[in-house]
Computed example of a mutant assay.
Amino acid sequence: MDLGTLYLSEVRERLRGTKQLGDRALAQLPEEHWHTVLAPEGNSVAVIVQHLAGNLRSRWGGLLGGYREGVEGESPTRDRDAEFEDAQLSPAELIARWDDGWQVFLDALDHLRPDDLTQTLTIRGEAHTVLGAVERAALHASGHVFQLVFLVKTLRGEEFQSLSIPRGASAVFNAQMLRRA
């Protein structure tokens, strides 16, 4: 397998896992906490979801059918500033936006070919390789997902269900993994 094919396979898998992590965190958040802000100038879960969904739709919507030369990785209709204003959407509306943004991004990734990775994609007029744009998006999305996990864990307190290996359970987990190998 060539490096480009391997990279695309790995990044698709990792980003699907990143979305799942966010899904599992959001599933634990009661309706009354979606719009809670922990500090002045902080973002609520709702605002982070609005922003990330808007970013993913804007940046990757032009590549849904695959890479095309000259595609601008920022939709001219995007209102980024509005993404940071709480629109007071319901959890169901926010999840719909979340799922839509991720679907656009993951569909675009599914249509990329290894040869596309070295092509140029501009974002707000700044040139990137497609590989660089994917990495930029992966880091951006991961950062916001980890913010969501932190917020949900903080808001849920002792009721939060671990999304990975629970504290004190590493030895049991490692033994299970070794038995599978």
Rank of each mutant, 00 (worst) to 15 (best):
V130C: 04
G125V: 02
T120Q: 06
T129D: 01
A133L: 06
E135P: 08
S142H: 13
D110Q: 14
A133F: 02
V130R: 03
V134I: 11
L121P: 00
P114D: 12
S142D: 13
T122L: 04
L121H: 01
Q119L: 02
R136F: 04
P114N: 12
H111M: 15
L112N: 06
A133Q: 02
A127M: 04
S142V: 07
H140Q: 10
G143I: 11
V130N: 00
A141Q: 12
Q119S: 13
Q119P: 10
H128W: 04
V134Q: 02
G125Q: 02
G132D: 03
A141T: 15
P114C: 08
L131C: 05
L109A: 10
Q119K: 13
H111P: 11
L131F: 08
L112I: 13
T122P: 06
G143K: 11
D110I: 10
D115A: 15
H111K: 15
T122V: 07
L139F: 12
G132T: 04
A138N: 15
S142E: 14
L121D: 00
R113W: 08
R113Y: 11
G132V: 04
T118Q: 14
A137E: 08
G143D: 13
H140K: 09
G132E: 09
E126W: 03
G132S: 05
H111N: 15
R124L: 07
A127N: 02
Q119H: 12
T118Y: 07
V130Y: 02
T122N: 02
T120N: 03
S142F: 09
R136G: 05
I123C: 04
H111S: 14
R113K: 15
L131N: 00
L109D: 06
D116L: 10
D116I: 11
D116S: 10
H128D: 00
T129W: 00
A137T: 08
V134R: 01
L112G: 07
